[in-house]
């Protein structure tokens, strides 16, 4: 979420500096995914401007970058909300009712998978197994894992976050 702190110029400069280091290494093209990770971390998501920048700096055609960015689910092509909710849809979670959690969230937030609420507070994604099967069903909100969820529990969590925002 550093995008809220830095302005775009600063972000672009950091991306350029990062790429400059990469270009010193062997086979710099192979670091495209590394660079996109960094760009997303700095910018919050991969905007067209950011991908254009990466293209010019790394000498990789934009169509190639677009192809890579759209192949991997980890890359976000739209701005995401302050709270990024990933509902784990791994087998263990699925067996223990992950789809019910997902449905509850859809109702509660009024958005679909891959979408962001209008107030830019919440985004929701389906995640591949995040390896916390012992706590199934789980969801991740930003970097924090919430386990043994029920429809009520996830609703409570959302409401708590909403309240926190209001009081800020």
């Amino acid at each position: 979420m550093t995008s809220h702190i830095h302005n775009q110029e600063e972000i672009n400069k950091q991306i350029k500096d990062f790429i400059a280091e990469i270009l010193k290494q062997d086979r710099p093209d192979s670091h495209l995914i590394t660079v996109l990770h960094k760009a997303q971390e700095l910018n919050g998501y991969l905007s067209r401007e950011v991908m254009d920048l990466v293209s010019q700096e790394m000498n990789i055609p934009t169509s190639t970058i677009w192809g890579v960015a759209t192949f991997y689910h980890y890359f976000k092509l739209n701005p995401i909300g302050k709270y990024n909710i990933s509902v784990c849809m791994g087998t263990a979670c699925y067996v223990k009712g992950a789809s019910e959690i997902l449905e509850t969230l859809k109702e509660e937030l009024g958005i679909g998978v891959g979408e962001t609420t209008e107030d830019m507070l919440f985004s929701m994604h389906e995640a591949r197994c995040i390896g916390a099967c012992g706590l199934a069903p789980v969801a991740m909100i930003n970097d924090k894992i919430y386990g043994e969820l029920t429809p009520k529990k996830i609703t409570d969590i959302i409401n708590k976050l909403r309240k926190e925002e209001e009081t800020k």
Partner: peptide, 9 residues
């Protein structure tokens, strides 16, 4: 030229 490429999957 690489004007086009595969996108999505």
């Amino acid at each position: 030229i690489s004007a086009i490429d595969y996108a999505n999957r």
